[in-house]
Amino acid sequence: MQLAKNIYAMLCKDFKAEFRRKEILSSMLFFSLLMVVIMNFTLNINKDILFENFSGLIWIVFLFTGVLGINRSFINERTNDCYLGINLAVGESSTILISKAASNLAFISIVQTIVIPIFFILFSIKWPLNAFAFLLVNFLGTIGFVFLGTFLSVLTINNNSEILLPIVLFPLLIPLILAVVQASNLILKGLSFQLWGHWLGLILVFDFLYIVVPILLFNFLVEV
């Protein structure tokens, strides 16, 4: 109960800060829109090939915009020693990780709900029949990505180099990205669950492992 309360309080704080600063959400949104536009200019391929690679393109955009947002989440806590304050207020360190991941997930999901339809419109791809499965797979993929990313961003922010997060994060994410892209490609083609069910299983395993293990290890990263 206390855990839920703390997470809720942290979420409220993050949202309040974001609505005052208007930094993460807007920059992520415009960056991803820019990438969509750039892809439209640079990729001169016919519709069949585009259709085959569509979810791959979406995920390239998600990865780069996601890293942009995740990198900010802990950096903003460094000014005025906010991080110390949070640690003292919350106490349990894994709560910080969970709530930070939750707020990152919320921001990235907001961006995704805007960008995914734009993607479909600009590339003139037909909306999949099984839209729920498509969105579910993408959301589950985002959970794993955001959780691991948030955790690793704690490792990399202390280096004062934001470039390190993608270098550390992307190799680890490869199975997840592979699974999400393959599954959503098959869903886009309207194929049945039997053909992409195992990919969903892989996504779930990845999500589970990379939620549990970071929570167990996060205590080692906290320094007050």
Partner: peptide, 27 residues
């Protein structure tokens, strides 16, 4: 700090290897 952080990455990275293996095999 270097020791702690890299130990955490060493563990996280090792867990990833079997998942990579399965995902690529299915692919």
């Amino acid at each position: 700090r270097k020791a702690r952080y890299s130990a955490v990455l060493g563990i996280i990275g090792f867990i990833d290897v079997p998942i990579v293996w399965f995902s690529v095999r299915w692919w």
